[in-house]
Write a protein that binds this DNA or RNA. Structure first.
Lengths: 155, 155
DNA sequence: GGATACATGGACATCTGAAATCCATGTTGA
DNA sequence: TCAACATGGATTTCAGATGTCCATGTATCC
């Protein structure tokens, strides 16, 4: 895997939105400025996130975006895959099962390793969600959320 | 990180060479054919690996490459970094410490996660080396190495 | 109802680096 | 002298990531 800038932007935007009260609507301009993300590019990303059900969009003046689902349900992995598609540490793993499988598939000396590594990465990225972050130290200006119980990330 | 095809080729080539007795010299053509790697591209890769001290090259007829150091000393990470340079799961981590550090560095809600993830990946890739692979099942045709004690990969 | 501040959508431009190829040259052993 | 190999460098291809522009639609406010 490689976290593309696009995914990183998406994550930052989602984290930013998640830092505020659930009903606050954040505009593209606001997020772009706060997170130093190219405005037009961010617009694309947010639209995509909305299409994929992560965000709810509001048009017109005072428009913008807010989370479309509870923070607990939004994992890093889901955001990243929404932007980049499925991620793989190595083509060796990506091609497992199809006809482009690596030529020494069955006996590939490294295959077991890549598989293990792949699982580990997926598990890690799945283990963090928007409810498990330390918003206070990151966005002190954000109003505190009502239910501020923060599940600890699985080590 | 993302394992580029180049790194994958390099790994496969190194694994192939490591499967044989230490004094066997493998030609580019031989490796290219066995591992299905574009011949000219592989030539570049092997030359680079030689320059960086992983392989020893032999010119002229019957020329080729053999390992330049004990298999134990060649980790996956070292090969990958030789091909791609330092790897990072996210620019957030790459820029740590320099002036392009992410704008919310100190309070970035995700920074701790990426750091942990980065360490984990590095540790994993460092934990496998050319001495810890199951060559028998992968290269049955390869003559068995003399010292065939195979350290088990750290789980 | 007009001005304003938003999102939308699509086309376009840029840029980068991975991946691959070509070919001319040097080296060695039979 | 030939065959089989490595070396070196220039060049190409190509896709995808990244970013920009602009015309259009929509909701709110005065």
């Amino acid at each position: 895997m490689q976290i593309s800038r696009k995914s990183d932007y998406a994550l930052r935007a989602m984290v930013y939105i998640a830092a505020w009260e659930a009903d606050k609507i954040c505009s593209i301009n606001e997020i772009a400025e706060a997170e130093k993300i190219p405005r037009e590019y961010l617009a694309k990303i947010l639209k995509e996130l909305a299409l994929q059900g992560f965000l709810q969009s509001f048009k017109g003046i005072n428009g913008g975006y807010k989370l479309a689902m509870p923070r607990e349900r939004v994992t890093f992995l889901s955001i990243i895959e929404a932007m980049q598609g499925k991620i793989y540490v190595n083509d060796c793993v990506r091609n497992a099962g199809n006809n482009e499988a690596c030529n020494r598939m069955s006996g590939c000396a490294m295959h077991a390793f890549w598989n293990t590594e792949q699982d580990r990465v997926i598990k890690s990225l799945s283990s963090v969600n928007l409810a498990g972050l330390d918003y206070e130290s990151c966005y002190p200006e954000a109003r505190k959320r009502k239910n501020s119980k923060q599940p600890v990330r699985v080590a």
